[in-house]
Design a binder for these strands. Structure first.
Lengths: 127, 127
DNA sequence: CTATAATTTCGACAGGCTTCTAATCAGAAG
DNA sequence: CTTCTGATTAGAAGCCTGTCGAAATTATAG
């Protein structure tokens, strides 16, 4: 009972990732591989209405506002969240497609919801 | 914190991650947030028999053996892979529970789009 | 129009990560 | 027993990232 059947479905277990694909996914993973950014993403995703103001996020951390803004920019550059300015405040919301792509990477089963392999994303990979 | 009932979302979207939980998950995510380690994990997971020898992995990279060994140790320390020495060679295999935990983090993110919400079988990931 | 508040950008420093070479350990073959 | 191959460990150089403080930008309020 080491490996249950059905493991062959996850993209990561189906075939070796290409070099450029791995690099592209690593950028996405690096964005969430940080405690602060992971909490930020979770706070935004779990916020009522799917939107969260920056003023609501800064209070939960012992970090300065510029640091929070920096982490938000990393998440936004990776395409995981999207920001919108409404008056004085800026509201962020998650991008479901990007988050789902992460989940589908490691999830052996499921992945029955649409195709998340190819996307119309311009992929502005900053190097 | 108005979570719609019955809409059991991903852990990341259900409620804000705790500080220690986020730090713990970040360690796991950092392990895969690297192109080399992501490819290594994929090569091990997609290898026939679920096992891969180190000698098979080093050839796919332009890196030295110690570097590959270092990345494998990071993956092993994170609990994503498990190594076993059989004679001269060392074989690595993935730990499904750890990989599934990563996938479950982001996967069940419910999107507002009512396209094909046929996820009646969430297949709970237990640890 | 001016003032205030919030957010972002800029510059800088400490710390961690990736990679290398050299050395060490484990097992097999002669 | 000696030697050889394969894998890991130790130590160090170089680069990138996280963090902070100060300045600049933007929008609303009066």
């Amino acid at each position: 009972m080491t490996v249950p059947p059905g493991q062959c479905c996850a993209p990561i277990a189906r075939e070796p990732l290409a070099e450029d694909t791995a690099a592209e996914l690593a950028v996405l993973l690096k964005a969430v591989a940080d405690p602060v950014r992971l909490r930020l993403l979770s706070m935004i995703a779990s916020h009522a209405g799917g939107e969260a103001c920056v003023c609501d996020l800064t209070g939960a951390f012992d970090l300065t506002a510029p640091t929070i803004s920096h982490h938000l920019k990393v998440l936004r550059t990776a395409g995981l969240i999207d920001g919108e300015r409404r008056g004085t405040w800026v509201y962020y919301r998650v991008v479901p497609e990007a988050v789902n792509r992460l989940g589908a990477l490691f999830t052996p089963l499921a992945s029955r919801v649409g195709t998340l392999h190819d996307e119309a994303a311009p992929s502005p990979v900053l190097r």
